[in-house]
Design a protein around this nucleic acid. Structure first.
Lengths: 316, 316
DNA sequence: TCCATTCGATAAAGATATTTGATCGAATCC
DNA sequence: GGATTCGATCAAATATCTTTATCGAATGGA
C-alpha cells in the first residue's frame, strides 16, 4: 500500500468524525466546512482502500476498518504530542542532551563533579561525558560529535574557539612521612636530590615542569616514569618519593592530609584549562545552560560550594 | 506548540536529509529538487522553533534537536507502517474483527464450535461472540454493535435482512432407562401420560411444541417448567421424565447414548435459525469470510466434518 | 402524509501549499 | 585560482485543500 499521501491532517479529520460520528460536527470542531471534511475522509478512504464509515439512514457508523484506523490514529496522535513535548523541553532548556568531550585530567577530576551538580539541578538534561586525548577530542568536536569540550590547551583549529575556563596550579607533594614533608620551605635544589615520579613526556603537566627544572639548571635524581596520574599518586602516598600534580587531581588527598603540599620556593606554576566550542554555533538552551553552569562552577571553585535555588554553585 | 501544520511529508523529508546529511541527496532519494527539500526543512524548523541542522562549511550536522526529531520521526514512521500493515490485512481478509450477536440456543450450542473452526483457519481474524436475547441482539445489530447475528426468528426491522441459516429439528428424548426408551414407535398420546420438562412460555421452542399438542387436542401430564435448557437436560438425563430439545442442544448426548430420541409418530418439528445482517452493507473481507464459512459449516452439519485446505468444513 | 430539517455527496471556484527552475554566495577540492 | 558542490532564495507553475452552492435521501414533527 502506498501511504505516501497519508497526512496527519486526514487522520485528525477522521478522528474528529469518528468521535462525533458526524461529518458536520467534526467540521465545526475543526473550523472546517462539512464539505472539506467529506473531501478529507474520501481521500483517506481511497488511500486505505476500505470504507471507514457506513451510512445507515442519516447516521454514520464506524466500520471495522474505521475502528482499526481510530486506534492507529490515536497512536499517531500521541506520538505527535510526545514530539511536541520533547521540543517544548528543548526550547525551554528543560530537556535535551549535551555531549561533552574532555581530556583526561579535567575529565576525570573535575567534570564528573560539575556534571553531578548540573544533573541534579537540571534533571531533564542528559549529559554525556567522554574522555579522550586532546587530539581526539578536537577531531570529534570538529565532526560535531561533541557539543563542547574541556581540554588543557587552547585549541587552534579553524572554526573552533577556546576560552580560558579553569586555572589549575601544578604543585609538588609527598606523603606526610617523607623527609621533605616537615620542611616549612623547600628549595628547588633539594627536590633534585629526591626520587621524583613523572608522567610520560607528552603530558602537558610534564612539559611545564621539565621547563621549570631546565630553567634553573637542575637535573633530577632518578625520575621514575609511570603511566598514569593514579599510579604516581599511589607511589607518593606510599612514601616512595615526591611528584608534581595538578591541584585538581590531589585536592581530596591534600584536604585529608594523606598528601602534603611542598612549599617550593618560586614554584608557583599555573596551568589553564579551556572550554572549546564551535565558532558560530547558536547553542540550544540545554547546551547554553550547561556551559553557563560550568563557568560559574569553575570560577567559584568546587568542593566548598553550596547551591542557590537554581542549582548553581555559590560560595556558601 | 502548535503542531497542526506538521505533516508526515515534512518528517519524511527531514528523515531523508538526516540520513544522508545532505539536502541534495535527500532530494534525489525522494525525487524532489533540493529546493523543495530546503523548503520543507525550513517550514519544519520554523514550526519546531529550533534549528535541526547546523551548517559548518559545506557539511551539515544534526543538532541535538535534530537527533531528537529523528527518533520521533522514526517512531511515527513505524506507526504509519503498522497502520499500513493492519489495512493490508483488512483488505485481504487476513485480519480484522467480526462482532457476532446470537440468541441463547444457537449462540451456546452451535456458534462456539463454528467460531472455533473459523479461528483455527483464520488466525488473524478476531471473532467476538455475544449472547443476548433476540430483542437485544436486534437492537444492537441496528446500532451496528454487531456485524452479523444469528437468531431463531426472521427479524423484521427495516434495514435488516434475515436469511435461513440452519435447520434445527425439535425432538423428544428421554434417558435410556426411561419406560419410553425401548418403544420403537411412540404415539403422541403416550407422551401425554409422562412427566414433561419445558422451558418458560416465551421460548420459541416451547411455543412450537405447545401448538403441536394443542393441534392434537392433547393435554400434558405435569408439565414442569425449568429455567434453562441445561436444567431440563440434567433432569432428563437423571431419568426424571421426557422433554423436547433442539437437536443442536443434545447432539452430543444422543451420540453418546446418554439420551435416547423418541420416535414420536408425526412429530417431525423443524425450526429454522436465521443469519441477520444489514440490508445494503458491503461487508469487509473479514466479515465476508466469516459468513461464508458459517454458511458452509451450517449446511454440512457439524461434528462429523473434516476441513479442506482452506479450513472449510467438508464431509470427510 | 407532507413539509421542514438534517445529513453527507458533489462540482466548480477560490485560496493555500508545494514544487520547480533559475540564481546566488560560500566553502571546498584539485 | 578556477571549477565544483552545496544550500538558500525568489518567482512562477502546479497541486492540493477549502469554500460556496446545490442535490437527494432520510428523518421527525405536525
Amino acid at each position: 500500500m502506498d501511504l505516501r499521501r497519508l497526512t496527519l491532517h486526514q487522520l485528525r479529520v477522521f478522528h474528529a468524525v469518528a468521535r462525533h460520528l458526524s461529518f458536520t460536527r467534526a467540521g465545526e470542531e475543526l473550523l472546517l466546512t462539512q464539505s472539506a471534511v467529506s473531501a478529507q475522509v474520501r481521500v483517506l478512504t481511497d488511500l486505505l482502500g476500505v470504507p471507514l464509515f457506513e451510512q445507515r439512514g442519516r447516521r454514520i457508523y464506524l466500520t471495522d476498518a474505521g475502528r482499526t484506523l481510530l486506534e492507529h490514529a490515536r497512536r499517531l496522535d500521541a506520538a505527535v504530542e510526545a514530539l511536541g513535548d520533547a521540543f517544548d523541553a528543548l526550547r525551554h532548556g528543560t530537556g535535551g542532551r549535551v555531549r561533552v568531550g574532555a581530556s583526561t585530567s579535567i575529565g576525570t577530576y573535575f567534570l564528573p563533579f560539575l556534571i553531578g551538580g548540573f544533573s541534579e539541578s537540571h534533571p531533564g538534561i542528559d549529559v554525556a561525558l567522554e574522555i579522550e586525548n586532546s587530539a581526539h577530542v578536537q577531531d570529534r568536536l570538529l565532526r560535531s560529535e561533541f557539543d563542547v569540550a574541556y581540554v588543557g590547551a587552547p585549541v587552534t583549529a579553524p572554526g573552533l574557539v577556546a576560552e580560558a575556563f579553569l586555572e589549575d596550579e601544578i604543585l609538588f607533594a609527598c606523603a606526610p612521612g617523607h623527609p621533605l614533608a616537615a620542611s616549612p620551605r623547600v628549595e628547588p635544589q633539594q627536590l633534585a636530590r629526591h626520587k621524583l615520579f613523572v608522567r610520560e613526556p607528552g603530558s602537558a603537566t610534564r612539559r611545564t615542569v621539565d621547563a621549570y627544572f631546565r630553567d634553573r639548571g637542575l637535573a633530577l635524581l632518578e625520575p621514575v616514569q609511570l603511566g598514569s596520574v593514579e599510579a604516581i599518586k599511589q607511589s607518593v602516598l606510599a612514601g616512595l618519593g615526591v611528584a608534581y600534580f595538578s591541584e585538581l587531581t590531589v585536592r581530596k588527598e591534600l584536604a585529608e592530609g594523606s598528601l602534603v603540599r611542598l612549599a617550593v620556593r618560586d614554584a608557583r606554576v599555573v596551568r589553564t584549562f579551556f572550554e572549546v566550542h564551535h565558532q558560530d554555533c547558536r547553542p540550544l538552551p540545554a547546551l547554553q545552560r550547561f556551559t553557563e553552569f560550568a563557568r560559574v562552577y569553575a570560577r567559584h571553585g568546587f568542593g566548598q560550594l553550596g547551591r542557590n535555588r537554581d542549582g548553581y554553585p555559590v560560595r556558601g
